[in-house]
Design a protein around this nucleic acid. Structure first.
Length: 152
DNA sequence: GCCAACGTTGGC
DNA sequence: GCCAACGTTGGC
């Protein structure tokens, strides 16, 4: 089993939305590196840290689980969709999604607190200039974050 | 709202 | 293939 971090702006889709929906299709990713992770690397049963960006408080808001592995992003085929991409063809899709399931929500662990944790110093999330919306997380980092969630 | 960092596009 | 211009992300 592997571990990941997914970023979202909660005004667009939050951990509370996921709790309500139970399962959601993680669509709209339009970055090739993130796409490669979604298409090739996220596997059923993998655990996901759910990160809220551009909000208050910024930070990790909960955990989800991959329940369906990469498949073509249908929003790329829909001319009316904000994420429409005319260059993504049904016989040669450019963009991919996975389905994730709600596991738990906790009091947001603020980015400022995450930054102070030496054990998390190598997380991509905390590296300068890191913008990738789908990131790998090491097992030890994932477990450390869960411990922090229990302490808060 | 600013702006640093990064990704993408397109002219050459 | 280079790289300037442009667009986006996302913390502050």
């Amino acid at each position: 089993m592997r571990y990941w971090l997914l970023k979202t702006e909660p005004t667009s889709y939050s951990i509370e939305d996921l709790k309500r929906d139970t399962v959601t299709m993680w669509d709209g990713v339009r970055n090739y590196q993130a796409r490669n992770f979604l298409r090739d690397e996220l596997k059923r049963g993998d655990r996901v840290l759910f990160y809220h960006s551009s909000t208050e408080p910024i930070g990790i808001a909960g955990v989800a689980e991959v329940v369906k592995e990469g498949y073509p992003d249908p929003t790329a085929f829909d001319p009316k969709d904000h994420h429409y991409d005319p260059d993504s063809k049904k016989d040669n899709p450019r963009w991919y999604v996975v389905d994730i399931k709600f596991v738990e929500a906790f009091k947001v662990i603020p980015l400022s607190v995450l930054k102070k944790e030496r054990a998390l110093g190598r997380m991509p999330l905390l590296q300068r200039g890191q913008r990738l919306s789908v990131q790998p997380v090491a097992k030890g980092e994932f477990e450390h974050v869960l411990k922090m969630a229990k302490r808060l």
